[in-house]
Write a protein that binds this DNA or RNA. Structure first.
Lengths: 282, 282
DNA sequence: CATGGGCTTTAGCTTCTCTAAACGCTATAG
DNA sequence: CTATAGCGTTTAGAGAAGCTAAAGCCCATG
């Protein structure tokens, strides 16, 4: 920046505001009273601009991590664990957007997505996190008053339906599940239906009936004793949870850190399940 | 502004901050979460900028009038009357700078100057406001304890000197004044000296002695009974008060309004003096 | 009277930013 | 299913703005 350029800019600005901003003295430039008066407000305004700009660029300089996840996974699996990540990386602000759209990834707005699906995400970096099974669950209270010890006991229960709009043919609904186990005399279409897996689980926790729940999502409630799975019949499904990100985002330190962390969490989760199942003989 | 230009600017800005600001949806543009978050701060910042800019341009849009006047005139004549102008024009903020420099006028920082001098202000619009005389004054208390009824009585008084640095040969100091009246045995150089006319007057009000005061400046104190002028010998001087402004400023509504107002005030002032003097027989 | 600092002026080049027009995509109407 | 309208983007080119380098000015200092 040459002095001439600065001089020209000052004069343009003075013409623009129609008032002198500097007193030209033999010893140099001095701010006029008007400029002095406006100076603090200008400083503040530019500080605010810088602040606002840094909000926009926070993602770039490692201070923000924007996640998107399926709502149920976010509620039942991710959020309960996120605190650990934030403890490990307190300088990172995690922005979690629960929603069904994957499109955010291509707009660059979101750094990492965790999706439930078949694992086909063209153009994106994909890592399989956790598999999924479905298993009938109910609340311990309900189990006490109206025990579910064999599939046939379902006849005396309200069935809670997971109506998540997933195109997963391998994932059984109650009708398929009952048919596969030869249960008769139970209408697998009756009962309340929820468009999110987490809501079905919540309904079951509240004792409203028996849910055919995704186990990954129900596990925390099972561990906590808010749910029981007396039948111990888990059916594996094709879909699984995948962590996905645009290749370009892989260089961001907060993205690398999160990927490492969530993969380790997922492995711990699956190892714990395996131990449980061996113990229980599933 | 064509849509294309806007589009390009948006993209430049997104490249600059390194993050998407808009979601491109089939129905149109939507702000991203990051942009939404930064938006209030940005709004505020730009509001502040506009505010600060309006501080700078206040002079142009009629809301500010910047005056400069000799300090004594400002204190003793202008400020006591300024309230009336501000009542007449409440939307105008008056900025009064008391000082001796005339240079401010050429920098455009000041709209109007009121100067005491010979009336030669090349390149500027000039209007004579009020003439000036000098007259011995003292406080009523002092007059009561130590009467001043003839010039010879000055021998028993402390003389207060106006040491304003004016190149007005016609303006008498005590030495000249005493000599002109044939007073002997009084040392016209003794006594306290003040570099501002208003301070001399203030000293006289406080009873410290007899001032050879500028009457225009002392009149308010005479009217209020804080000073008396028992000798009633007023000596006219060559200098006078002039209101001066750059020609370009003459178009500003606040400048026009002020000129009209101060000229009327000056005429009222001189008319009142004339009436007084006729009544007193000066 | 010469020197030097600080700011401005000038000319010319570079860079940015605008316009105009074509293009692409999606939703709606016929 | 094609046509059309709405909305945003892309492209090329013209125009404006901003920068640099160098000369110029003014005042203070030695």
């Amino acid at each position: 920046m040459t002095p001439g350029a600065v001089s020209q800019q000052i004069q343009n600005l003075e013409d623009y505001v129609g008032a002198a901003l500097f007193k030209r003295t033999p010893k140099g430039l001095l701010l006029t009273d008007a400029a002095q008066t406006a100076l603090p407000a200008l400083r503040e305004a530019f500080d605010r601009l810088a602040e606002a700009a840094s909000m926009l660029t926070a993602a770039v300089d490692g201070r923000r991590l924007t996640l998107t996840a399926a709502p149920s996974f976010a509620a039942k699996w991710l959020v309960p664990r996120l605190g650990k990540f934030e403890e490990l990386h307190p300088q990172v602000d995690v922005w979690l957007s629960a929603g069904l759209e994957l499109v955010d990834l291509s707009t660059g707005e979101v750094d990492i997505a965790i999706r439930y699906g078949g694992g086909r995400y063209p153009g994106l970096e994909v890592r399989r996190l956790i598999g999924e099974t479905v298993i009938p669950v109910l609340s311990p209270d309900l189990q006490a008053t109206n025990p579910l010890n064999t599939p046939a006991d379902l006849a005396g229960h309200i069935l809670l339906h997971d109506g998540s709009p997933e195109p997963d043919d391998s994932c059984p609904d109650w009708t398929m599940w009952l048919a596969a186990r030869g249960v008769r005399g139970v209408d697998g279409a009756r009962g309340p239906r929820f468009n999110q897996s987490s809501l079905v689980i919540e309904a079951a926790v509240n004792g409203r009936g028996v849910a055919l729940a995704k186990r990954t999502l129900a596990q925390a409630d099972l561990d906590a004793g808010r749910l029981v799975a007396p039948l111990q019949i888990a059916t594996a499904v094709d879909f699984a949870y995948y962590v996905v990100h645009p290749k370009a985002k892989g260089r961001l330190p907060q993205v690398k850190a999160f990927l490492n962390w969530i993969i380790a969490e997922a492995e711990a989760h699956e190892a714990a399940l395996l131990a449980l199942d061996n113990g229980a003989g599933i």
